[in-house]
Design a protein around this nucleic acid. Structure first.
Lengths: 217, 217
DNA sequence: GAGCGTAGTGACCGGTCAGTAACAAGTCAA
DNA sequence: TTGACTTGTTACTGACCGGTCACTACGCTC
């Protein structure tokens, strides 16, 4: 293929050259491997990144990688698992920060959604991208992907139900697909395409499902 | 990686064993290569398929492949180009078959959309999938992908304008993103997820944009 | 039937892939 | 200080990657 992900980035995190041979890294090799792999996978694609490049980016070596993960596929699955945890954590925090204020919760969530389809370096949803690259039904990552997507949809249902919007399930499905579409589409035409209208679309949809008795704040 | 796409399918098309050494294939090697490559790329992913497997599936050999294409990347681009042509052809035929009947045109188009998110073996939009797998900005296929996506969106605008729906551009953007989302999402959770509501969502959106004076047929 | 273009064959190139073996060196607790 | 455990290092395997080689076989046209 034209470009691989070989040997980019000098060393692992917490290094600055070759003066000090290898000052103690603050995180464990395992964590660094998962972190480096997640970053490379996201930027270049899973199949485009070799384990050597991952080990190097993590400031360690292939042998240590294989002491922690039985295979590259298992490492991929672990990256997805950790990513799913981070997403879960985001939702938990959101709910905690806006307990009793569903309107504020929706506003904060919308800001995050906007970030996902406008920021520099965004390359869509890592889960969805992985699903494209890993069609094998028995890949250990597929279960993680499916669970994450189902979970995301359920979080939306919950959010809209808390906000007392009508037909929260249908609304969640629609908004969920819009987000999925926007995040995949920016990879084809960039952030100035139809995805640039995403937030306004969602706002309009939400507005149309508001109970008749209330108005926007 | 766990599974590659090596040596599946017996020989190329138009062969049935080794009795007749190689009866004349009905199509040119070039066409067979593009066809085989497109199929393998779609089913297994672009990076998961090697040129050997493509040549074998096309009933030819690697040397002939490289006589017709300067590189695998160029072959990928040609596959995308041909796919884009087929899509264009579909839209031209649709417009021709329903000239003066925009309502019928929309119905026929919706049937095709439904097919894309329910059929066995569907793995989303080949263009979008390619965009995920080919993040390199200078890949020869990227221009094809971008043009195809922009073109699709414009076809929708045209379709809705012909049907005299209000705000055809905003409507097209919304429906376009819904379709993109549905097609990517079935790769994560299958056809029974939110994508199963896609057609009804689109129908409702279209209904809401109908001019007040007319009703559905 | 000579000449030419296209296609087929199989060996081969350097490089990279995922994954392993063997051993040295570091860390840390008892 | 010992000993167990975790890391680092180097070299390696065998398979596969994209891509090229020289050479052969066919079909067409003049």
């Amino acid at each position: 293929m034209s470009a691989s992900a070989k040997s980019q980035g000098p060393k692992g995190p917490g290094e600055k050259g070759h003066a000090a041979k290898r000052q103690v890294p603050t995180t464990s090799p395992r964590d660094r491997i998962v972190e480096a792999a997640s970053d490379l996978f996201y930027r270049h694609g899973i199949r485009a990144v070799g384990v050597d490049a991952i080990a190097e980016a993590a400031g360690t070596n292939k042998m240590t990688l294989y002491r922690h993960f039985t295979s590259k596929d298992e490492l991929v699955a672990e990256c997805l698992r950790r990513h799913a945890q981070e997403i879960d954590h985001y939702w938990d925090e959101l709910a905690a920060n806006y307990a009793g204020d569903p309107e504020g919760e929706i506003r904060a969530w919308l800001a995050a959604v906007s970030h996902c389809v406008t920021s520099e370096g965004e390359r869509g949803c890592a889960m969805a991208n992985a699903a494209v690259e890993l069609p094998e039904k028995d890949h250990p990552g597929r279960a993680v992907i499916e669970a994450a997507k189902t979970g995301h949809r359920e979080r939306l249902v919950e959010l809209f139900r808390d906000a007392k919007l009508s037909e929260p399930e249908a609304l969640a499905d629609e908004i969920f697909l819009l987000i999925e579409g926007a995040r995949i589409n920016i990879q084809s035409v960039g952030t100035d395409g139809p995805a640039s209208r995403l937030v306004r679309m969602i706002e309009a949809l939400i507005e149309s499902r508001r109970p008749a008795s209330s108005h926007a704040a």
